[in-house]
């Protein structure tokens, strides 16, 4: 059951490095629209780096391989072009932008998606913004607060999901969206993510802990280690990893490699 290349986010044998140091060493992954995939792995496996490279962070150099969004290579594109094509990254550590209000920030992002000369309709925009905020339990007065400034961890993550809800991407990468959240915040954020699931979006959830996957139940789970995907399975794999750790997968992978 493989989706046609035109409706998948496809990562093909991706190699990338920061400076001279290789971080991704031949990573491949297919995320069809309509599915939620999870990437799990130890600290330092390169999970967050993968997210940044997909979004086009200038610190990393892709040395070989490709990332295709609905069949189109996005490597070499500026981060804003990738975003406007439909890729969204929910940051592990969202930046604070002093003096730029959430309302203005999201509006600028939406405005950038309109053809030249077309203005975003303000009334509709606010109606939609307030509806999404209500759904995510983000107080309405947050619209006039500076982006992420003085926000708690939970508020920052809710704000990331709010942006995702407003920008309606075709593919979303959620980087450690559960980090720093208490159980109540985790439930709210997960409910927000689940509400966005559907046939028109593919999601990649990067997480350290199985806990998040109790709330955002994935279609597939991948294990990342040393810049590669070393094992894939269904949602049960997450539970097994939680119970048994990562050593067994790494050993299996190493055995398989040496057998080649």
């Amino acid at each position: 059951m493989s989706a046609p290349a035109t409706s998948t986010l496809s990562i093909r044998d991706l190699h990338a490095s920061i400076g001279e140091k290789p971080i991704l060493k031949g990573l491949s992954l297919e995320i069809p629209k309509g599915e939620v995939h999870a990437i799990m792995g130890k600290n330092g496996a390169g999970k967050s780096t993968l997210a940044k490279i997909m979004a086009g962070h200038p610190d990393y150099t892709v040395t070989s391989g490709d990332v295709l969004l609905d069949g189109e290579s996005i490597l070499g594109m500026e981060p804003d072009v990738r975003a406007r094509l439909g890729l969204f990254l929910a940051f592990q550590y969202p930046m604070e932008i002093p003096g730029v209000t959430i309302a203005n920030f999201i509006r600028a992002a939406l405005q950038a998606r309109l053809p030249q000369g077309e203005e975003l309709e303000a009334t509709e925009y606010y109606a939609k913004l307030y509806a999404k905020m209500d759904a995510l339990s983000v107080p309405r007065n947050f619209t006039s607060r500076s982006v992420n400034e003085g926000f708690s961890g939970g508020e920052k993550k809710r704000c990331e999901i709010l942006q995702m809800a407003m920008l309606e991407p075709s593919y979303a990468v959620l980087d450690e969206t559960d980090s720093g959240l208490d159980i109540d915040a985790l439930k709210i954020v997960s409910a927000g993510v689940n509400a966005l699931r559907g046939p028109n979006i593919g999601m990649l959830v990067i997480t350290h802990y199985q806990r998040l996957l109790d709330y955002i139940v994935p279609d597939k789970v991948h294990v990342m280690s040393d810049g590669r995907i070393i094992h894939s399975g269904d949602k049960e794999l997450a539970l097994k990893l939680e119970a048994q750790g990562y050593d067994w997968v790494e050993k299996e992978y190493a055995d398989a490699q040496s057998a080649l």
Binding site: A55, G56, H57, P58, E78, P79, D80, R82, A83, R84, F88, L89, F91, P94, M95, I97, F105, I106, A108, A109, A112, R113, Q163, L167
Partner: peptide, 9 residues
């Protein structure tokens, strides 16, 4: 980068 990742040039 954060702002560009939202589609803002």
């Amino acid at each position: 980068f954060y702002m560009m990742a939202r589609g803002i040039p």
